[in-house]
Design a protein around this nucleic acid. Structure first.
Lengths: 318, 318
DNA sequence: CTGAAAGCGCTTACAG
DNA sequence: CTGAAAGCGCTTACAG
């Protein structure tokens, strides 16, 4: 049996109430001598607070549920790590689940989290199903359920895509194709719209996987000279397919991608990207979830110029 | 206030004990008519079991803690997703933490998990600190604490590396350098030893990041003609540095890596790898943790031949 | 400043 | 087959 507060109280010659006051720094004051005895007793016994019991009584588990479509996708991997970090800084533990872009799995994950009585949910929503009307605070990142009017933590994609289009233009490209996802939901939809508004070119579609993007490119009868890709995951597939087909990047094909995950810096060639500010997105999501004051301004995205667009040297443009 | 078993019992005209028996399918039998009333009442009220209360009483939270050095590293990302999946299949929720290769952060994560009373821990151990002697089942994957004799779930690295060396030999390489981590702990140490036993060449070292590996290569006065790399994360950095330096892979530099993460299939050029069986590792780890019968045989690793070694076409060798 | 006690929502002997 | 009740280990009014 694990050591309980009762054990600590007995050893310190006081009550469990006082032990709780000491260990929680409140809500009642404790005499210094008593405090010292309690701390000593707790240390001697190797006491560790049972958060399950504390949660049942206090109503807060210290757990936050995080639902991501696919933690292997470098965009979600980067986002997930930042969120886990921000949550840990706030004293919360992160319970994670992959939805695999599947509504049923997503809903099973949310159910499990609610049964576990998480203090909140951070979700990159997937699919057509609507808001779960959870009895728990929810913050959506990147994408929210259709019809929802909740705040979505996401970068300013319109500005970023417009900048990317302008940059490819400077390289002399008149026509710029766009590789989107299979539907126009959420931020990728915004990216598509921003591209449509600024450029001429084909709209290509593939699932959000490198394999699917590579296969799509492989099947093209005519490759574009310039391509804007919705996600790094797909862009990595494009680079792979180009290499296999003997299409030189950026010589024959200029590529700009829209995530700016850590992976994008080390592709061959390095990807020019519209970089999402992962750390800031994570912090804003966590602040919003914990109802702390939060900067309400849209999150700026920035073009990071590397080699895949045709620029000779790596430089960063603010 | 959320709906409780007492609410369901009231509505069904029975006791909370019976509600519990119905919802848990035991441990006592319940008449069919009563069962139907309870189920109907639960559905009507939208009852959702409070797992916190159940955990306090039953002693099992349904939570498993997973500590990984870095979830952005493709090897750990792939492993983590498989483990989360295997745990979900077993009805467990995964609480995740990144140690960032830091002992203090690792130990803070373990403490947090123990306070949350997780049912078990799955850890890719990092650092020199020794076993935490936890009051919870622990399974180590990939690496265990120094001095520990616990089972480690890991692929058969010796055989895999020997095979990789043999393959590079067939490509005519006499000297084969090895890019290891900064120390020779765990599986990477095994990989180093297996390489030492089979090949002549320099031992290179970098931290487990693509940036560190790229920087190391950049600083080399003489590049190797053949390089075995301990991890995909580093191999991706090597490919990046080679591209930047105008070193052709596989023409000037043949590369074989040792993880076989999903990422390795889409690098430029595609990496020939000693592939770790992620799904199998995850399943064995979960089985071992939950004390289910488990195949005790070592986990086979296999050479997956792609382009970075010098082979003309992609083929898979069993 | 300190302590006895209620109660969070379950599970599970125990009694009927 | 069913129900009243104890108890998991905390937190927190309440009383002293």
């Amino acid at each position: 049996m694990a050591v309980t507060m009762a054990d600590v109280a007995r050893r310190a010659g006081t009550s469990v109430a006082v032990v709780s006051y000491v260990l929680n720094n409140g809500p009642r004051p404790v005499a210094e001598a008593t405090r010292a005895r309690v701390l000593a007793a707790a240390a001697e016994l190797g006491y560790r607070r049972n958060r399950v019991a504390a949660a049942l009584r206090s109503g807060s588990t210290g757990l936050v549920g995080l639902v991501l479509p696919d933690t292997v996708n470098p965009y979600f991997a980067a986002l997930g790590r930042q969120i886990e970090q921000a949550l840990a800084d706030a004293g919360k533990l992160t319970v994670i689940a992959n939805s695999g872009y599947d509504s049923a799995r997503q809903s099973a994950a949310v159910d499990g989290f609610l049964a576990a009585r998480v203090d909140g949910l951070i979700i990159v929503w997937t699919g057509d199903s609507t808001d779960p009307a959870a009895e728990t605070p929810v913050v959506y990142v990147h994408n929210r359920p259709p019809g929802s009017t909740a705040t979505v933590i996401a970068g300013d994609n319109r500005a970023g895509v417009a900048e990317a289009v302008a940059h490819l233009r400077e390289h002399g490209h008149e026509r710029i194709d766009f590789l989107a996802g299979e539907t126009d939901d959420g931020p990728v939809g915004e990216r598509v719209a921003a591209w449509r508004a600024a450029a001429q070119g084909r709209l290509l579609r593939s699932a959000y996987s490198r394999a699917a993007a590579a296969e799509l490119m492989r099947g093209l009868t005519k490759w574009p000279a310039a391509l804007l890709v919705a996600t790094d995951e797909q862009a990595i597939g494009v680079l792979s397919a180009a290499d296999a087909a003997g299409v030189a990047v950026p010589g024959d094909l200029a590529v700009v991608s829209c995530d700016g995950s850590p992976d994008s810096e080390f592709t061959v060639p390095p990807l020019t990207v519209v970089a999402q500010p992962f750390a800031e997105m994570a912090q804003q999501a966590v602040r919003l979830l914990l109802a702390e004051p939060r900067d309400g301004s849209p999150i700026a995205v920035r073009l990071t110029v590397r080699r895949s667009c045709g620029c000779p040297h790596r430089t960063t443009v603010a």
